[in-house]
Computed example of a mutant assay.
Amino acid sequence: MEHNLFVLVDLLGTFAFAVSGALAAEQRRLDLFGVLAISYLTACGGGVIRDLCLGALPPVGISDWRYLATSALAAGLAIWARPIIDHLKHPIVFFDSLGLGFFAVIGAHKALQFGHNVEVAILLGMVTAVGGGVVRDVVLNRVPIILEKEIYAIAALVGAAIQVLGQLMDWKFALTPWFGALTCFGLRALAVRYSWSLPVVRGRDVAQ
């Protein structure tokens, strides 16, 4: 039952990130193959990086057909339902934030399953959450969100930390991942709504 729960959370994160990738690709006016490719890279990029770090080979995003199918389904729905999705104020940010929360808890959970310590679990939770978005933005020639001043990676770290804390303290396993994902999503949504950001490092002006 526990395994099925985390597979579900992982596939939900895959779906959310795939939609954000498809929407971003559509904005760049890519063809159908381009939309499907960006959707898949966004959905599975972070998980592939995580599995390579853990030595879980081949990565589940490549070896399990459900991830490719979920990505393709999400891309198709994003194209078909674009008029409905456009009613959202910031659709890419919304689905990206959903995926961020789901993947943060999944990455942390899997690292703990492989016997790693708290620090590794939290960091790999963050890497899983932000990796796909970085791949998407680099391929589409955009500045990755993680490099901007928005609250993004911090939200993923919080979600991953909640998952790790819950597992170490034997919280009810059926509730912990949802709580971690919801907290991450909520923090990210509030940061976008109220323009929360980290301080910007400003160097001295150099005279020319």
Rank of each mutant, 00 (worst) to 15 (best):
Y152D: 06
L182I: 13
L187T: 00
E150S: 11
W178I: 07
R188P: 08
Q163H: 07
V192K: 10
W171K: 06
C184D: 04
A181T: 02
Y152N: 07
A153Q: 12
V192T: 02
W171I: 07
A181Q: 05
Q163D: 13
C184E: 06
G180F: 08
T183G: 01
R188K: 06
A191L: 09
W196A: 00
A153Y: 14
S195Q: 15
V164A: 05
A191Y: 11
G159R: 04
I154S: 14
G159K: 07
G180T: 11
W196P: 00
Y194H: 11
G186T: 04
G180N: 07
W178C: 01
I162V: 06
S195F: 14
I151P: 10
Y152R: 06
M169H: 11
W171H: 01
K172G: 00
C184I: 08
A191G: 07
S195A: 15
F185C: 08
V158S: 03
G166W: 08
K172V: 10
A155Y: 04
D170P: 03
G166M: 10
W171R: 06
G159P: 02
D170I: 14
W196S: 00
Y152P: 02
A189S: 14
A156P: 08
K149P: 00
G159Q: 07
F173N: 02
P177R: 14
L165S: 13
L157A: 03
A161F: 13
F173D: 00
R188V: 00
A174V: 15
D170N: 15
L175N: 01
L187C: 07
I151G: 05
G186Q: 05
G159N: 02
A160E: 03
L165G: 08
V164F: 04
T183Q: 04
A181P: 03
L157G: 01
A155Q: 01
M169V: 11
Y152S: 03
M169P: 01
K172L: 09
A189Q: 12
E150Y: 12
D170V: 15
S195P: 10
